[in-house]
């Protein structure tokens, strides 16, 4: 009985420790989203002032405008392409990280991988401007090698944004894949080869299926970050690119149409949420299959 009481008292203590964070999360994460949801159903007047009346006007605007729908589609497609390309590049990078024989090589690769993670997104985006600008690094090198006469215009398009995204987001994909890879028993590769399968086909028949958890984890994070970021596209692609986060930012900063921005935000959340849920569902299905 005494033991029981003591146990209960501990539980009380743990709840006491947890309480401030719960209050904090409610106050500054849950309530802001509730307010934002509320905002997305408000009307605006001709001067974009938020009214006290509620309607579906903002959502109607989002879903009736073909430009808006196209933007949603392009945003998801760009995020999808970014995620696929990033994950494709992540495999060789993760392989090197996991199978590097010398520990100093592994440490070096780790440092290269983590530095961008800890460096501000705006700094990395700026670096890409320095690389790709008219008088940037690549144009200088190409001109001095006489490959081109006139500097190329490489900024302000979607491809550039995707390239920069890949660089910024690659570590998020490499790390979960590396974790999955290092969990694979090396004798599985040997078993496959002893059964006559070449190294490359062993990768597709054994390694790739077994890194699905890492792949999906990487995909989810890269996809949601790519779909939700406006810094990189704004700096490298310009304000006019048809990307939803850019559009939301414009609505807030230039148009001051907060209700429409809120409605666009929930559209973005829903779009990302659907894709992410699908991948989570796939992951669960795969795990269920593995365990029979």
């Amino acid at each position: 009985m005494r033991r029981f009481i003591k146990n209960q008292r501990n539980k009380g203590f743990y709840w006491l420790l947890l309480l401030p964070s719960i209050l904090f999360l409610i106050g500054f994460l849950v309530i802001p989203f509730v307010l934002l949801a509320d905002l997305s159903f408000r009307d605006v007047d001709a001067y974009m002032n938020t009214q006290d009346t509620y309607s579906f006007a903002q959502y109607a605007e989002v879903f009736s405008s073909s430009t808006n729908l196209k933007t949603v589609g392009i945003t998801l497609i760009v995020a999808f392409i970014t995620a696929i390309l990033t994950l494709t590049l992540a495999y060789p990078a993760a392989y090197l990280l996991v199978y590097a024989k010398r520990s100093f090589v592994r440490t070096l690769l780790y440092i290269i991988l983590i530095t961008p993670l800890l460096t501000s997104m705006v700094v990395l985006s700026f670096a890409w401007i320095v690389i790709l600008a008219q008088n940037g690094l690549i144009n200088q090198i190409l001109v001095s090698l006489n490959v081109i006469d006139e500097p190329l215009s490489m900024l302000w398009n979607m491809q550039t944004v995707i390239v920069a995204y890949i660089q910024v987001l690659l570590p998020f994909a490499v790390l979960p894949i590396a974790t999955s890879l290092s969990d694979i028993d090396p004798s599985l590769t040997k078993a496959s080869m002893s059964l006559g399968e070449s190294r490359i086909r062993t990768f597709f028949r054994v390694i790739l299926p077994l890194t699905i958890p890492g792949f999906i984890a990487g995909f989810i994070i890269v996809f949601s970050l790519a779909a939700g970021s406006y810094i990189t596209p704004l700096l490298l692609g310009g304000r006019l690119l048809p990307l939803l986060p850019l559009n939301i930012y414009q609505q807030v900063i230039q148009m001051s149409n907060l209700p429409l921005a809120a409605a666009l935000s929930f559209t973005l959340l829903a779009g990302v949420g659907i894709v992410v849920s699908f991948f989570v569902w796939m992951l669960n299905r795969w795990e269920a299959r593995m365990n029979g």
Binding site: D185, S187, L188, K190, A191, S192, M193, S194, L195, G196, E197, S198, R199, V206, P209, L210, R289, M290
Partner: peptide
């Protein structure tokens, strides 16, 4: 190894878990 046609049984069996 994949051209040797050698059957191998591993200590931990190395069955493909998927």
């Amino acid at each position: 190894p994949y051209r040797r046609k050698i059957g191998m049984v591993f200590q931990n069996y190395a069955l493909f878990p998927h």
